[in-house]
Nucleic acid binder design. Structure first.
Lengths: 151, 151
DNA sequence: GAAGATTGACCATTCAATCTTG
DNA sequence: CAAGATTGAATGGTCAATCTTC
């Protein structure tokens, strides 16, 4: 993205920024295509399911889930609707706070996630991790830390 | 994204990958919001306009444009439709090949892009470039190079 | 009145099919 | 028939408004 025009960015800066955008589109595009072809899941679905799998009782409050996943609350509601329709998740009311709602991973969800997990990991590994050294990875993580906490 | 589950990724790897996804969502979200609030442009629109601005005659073939921008051909057709509707771009037929179509940046397009350019650059700089050292940027660019050319 | 969650209306994007010209 | 471009149908997401409960 974003040809270097008359002002401002050096070509080194451009390579870092532009490459970031392209690499993201490329990697996410490939992973998403593979997940969806082989398991009928999008990357967002995978994200939600894997969060639930790691949570106690395989369940999380919608609001909590919305906080960790890359989606707005309404986007999450819609996605969980679809996952419920497909039998991978179900909803449960919250005892202590009647406004609250839980999403719970079903057995079928565990199963599908288990399959998808391998595809996902293999993809992340071959497309991303395997191309980078341990030192690269440390450096990347440190960059994301700094970028994340701007005001 | 993507809680570490029972298998496969070390926490260092996770920090690099997961941070990548989150940083992207965060940065692109902010830039997009700012561009759209202040200039009525999305990041994709900005991308297309700035490519055209840098091209000879401020014009490019649709197919060529689709090749450099982060959009499918049909996505580009749709976006150029909107940009035409807004008077920032117009279409032109291709002399030598009647199948072809050009997108041309209008004077109004140049003007709007000129304004948006400052917002965009300031955003990329403050959110991303300013947080990173020259050595970080070189390293990032080198990572993107390697990641990009996997089969 | 604020927080949690959802809903209605809408938007940007994609895939597959199509049309036209080479 | 292949390449360039567009279109119809469908998807996945957002924002603003809403409903319910605290």
């Amino acid at each position: 993205m974003f040809a270097q025009s008359t002002t401002g960015v050096s070509s080194a800066e451009l390579a870092a920024w532009d490459g970031f955008l392209r690499a993201h589109a490329d990697l996410v595009g490939r992973l998403d295509a593979e997940l969806s072809r082989e398991h009928g899941l999008t990357l967002s679905s995978y994200d939600v399911l894997s969060r639930l799998a790691a949570a106690p009782d395989r369940s999380m409050r919608m609001s909590e889930l919305a906080g960790v996943v890359i989606l707005t609350p309404s986007g999450l509601t819609r996605l969980v609707d679809r996952l419920c329709r497909d039998g991978l998740v179900r909803r449960r009311r919250c005892r202590s706070d009647a406004r609250g709602s839980f999403a719970v991973l079903t057995d079928r969800g565990v199963e599908v996630l288990g399959d998808a997990h391998h595809t996902y990991l293999a993809g992340v590994r071959s497309l991303f991790l395997d191309q980078l050294s341990a030192s690269d990875l440390r450096r990347l993580a440190s960059c994301w830390d700094r970028v994340a906490q701007v005001s």
